[in-house]
Nucleic acid binder design. Structure first.
Lengths: 187, 187, 187, 187
DNA sequence: AATGAATGAGCCTTCATTCAT
DNA sequence: TATGAATGAAGGCTCATTCAT
């Protein structure tokens, strides 16, 4: 039941926003009563936090797995991270959108926790860029901080327009983005 | 007065969110009463729409000016657009953040209008990329649609982390982003 | 309107208790809506505090007037205070009962304020007893603290049984109590 | 278990009030679940009634024992009743406070039962005063009804201020009160 | 004897909006 | 142009109670 509530909530938060979705809305869709909701969650915010944690923890775990792979170059790892981010928006688009849009509705304390985790993710990417510089895979005058923000912007922003069943697949988009970042668009 | 209300609303919407900001909050900061608000606006949504239009119209106008410039290459124009987007977040950060976050609170009708304008903006960028391909400034196998999304992602996302008085200026960030997009990060 | 709400609330709080009376109950009796209530009060507790302050401030003012009277003996003043307390329960019985029963529903802060005022009242009584000892009106080995508690107990408790239109008037009750306290019941 | 629930409930009702204490609160403190509560009690009100009956029955029994004593004067019996009431507040302060404060939360029917018992107690006291008048121990023009209310007020009110480990013991307070009632404070 | 899931009614509070002045 | 009083709908949350197991 707790899981069913969470799933339904993700759908509604994504469609209408957190503040615009009432507990009543959520439980109506599941044909249970508000009491039931409060049996499983102590507050609406706790539910939102659960959703956020579910998303970021999953993303961090996948990033970890990619970075751990021994016999891959930094370029290859960069592609895989880009692909992972795009494809996670394909498979868990609603969670992703809730994640990016609704952080402000968390309590100050919870928000801090999440911002820390998000910063860890970005920092790992920045370190990958630095490692690539050391290994002469990337330009040595690369601003790894700004560039990491740029790459994340490209991929994260895709939740605004990327459609799972659109013209381009997640793999194609990831390829185009990685090409752009690696080789540039200029002749 | 109408302008003062709009300005104050932008500040509060940016800080606390649209749904979380009450009309009362806004008028309290201006030491007037709710009646005054409803003398100038027919609804809270109208105010939000005004803010959105103010932002996108400004951005479109600036883009137009850049694209009209005769004696500039496509590369140069691309840099100028990136710079314009970053710098507008420096100078009008609050409006920008409200614009990106609060569109869902507009009525279906108003939202459509805005999405159209936003699509015009992106399409202009895509056309610039196509023109660049024709003029042999950009690779001929460039996916101008996806790449335009990528560039917008990079710049728009900067509202999440870019700080006007941070280590890098808007010009530097624009330069780094354009370099990355044009030349790539790979050796 | 604010006054009408307060009056109605006193009646209901007295009859059913503070926690057992809903804002809805109050406004229903006045044929207005809950919004109206919150236009005049910021919270249910504020209303309760208003009631408490209205009562204790009135009682303190009256006590002051009695104590200030120049040409009266301590015994006479004691009678007047007892009479005042009984008669205030006759005229403002509901307020009195709310005052004695519902203090626990105030916030910690507000409660402290009130307890201070109540303590001032009792202390004034204790000082009157001490003054009476000095002037040889009362026994010199009188425990003025415990006795003051006893007198207040007698009078305050009357809110539990005293009925304005009962067999004995407030003046008679005050006379009986004062006689008992002054002369004792023993032969 | 039933007893454990009752004890815990008394503590919580005294501290936070009946309406402000939830069944959940009570069972949490005992590390059992709500179901358990409803196995032993049919409703929250029944529990409150049990507490009330426990208190008043005990008080009535003790009063009975005092009144039955053959070789004591009415004055002595009066002292013992006052002492009994004060000391019961010392030993069972929580029950006493719940008794005096929470009667309004009983059903009309249950409340009547209790009021009857309370009236029996007061009436016994009044009869003791009458008996004292007959035996020339008390003034013959004594208003035994009002005086009995006064004595009960003095003692019952002590639950508001009497502290078991305070400056004066229960015996001392009872002595002061009885002296005041018997001999008066006037010289 | 005890649990845990679920209910449903009610509560305090907020807020966009209206309207007479 | 601006105010202040009032509305009504909705929202988050609590809680006594029920019941199958």
């Amino acid at each position: 039941m707790k899981e069913k509530i969470t799933e339904q909530a993700i759908l509604l938060f994504e469609k209408n926003g957190f503040s615009e979705t009432s507990i009543q809305d959520i439980v109506n869709h599941l044909h249970v009563t508000k009491g039931t909701f409060y049996y499983y969650f102590t507050s609406k915010e706790e539910l939102l936090m659960d959703i956020h944690n579910g998303y970021i923890d999953d993303v961090l775990k996948r990033q970890d797995q990619i970075l751990k792979e021994r016999n891959k170059s930094c370029k290859e790892k960069l592609y895989e991270i880009v692909f992972m981010l795009i494809s996670i928006i394909e498979s868990q688009g609603e969670s992703a959108r809730v994640f990016f849009r609704e952080m402000k509705n968390l309590s100050e304390e919870h928000k801090e926790d999440l911002i820390k985790k998000r910063e860890i993710f970005r920092n790992n990417l920045q370190e990958l860029l630095e490692e690539g510089k050391d290994k002469k895979e990337f330009h040595e005058d690369l601003s790894s901080d700004i560039v990491s923000f740029g790459i994340l912007g490209m991929t994260n922003w895709s939740y605004q327009w990327f459609k799972p069943n659109g013209k381009k697949s997640d793999q194609e988009v990831a390829k185009i983005f990685t090409d752009m970042v690696l080789k540039g668009i200029s002749i």
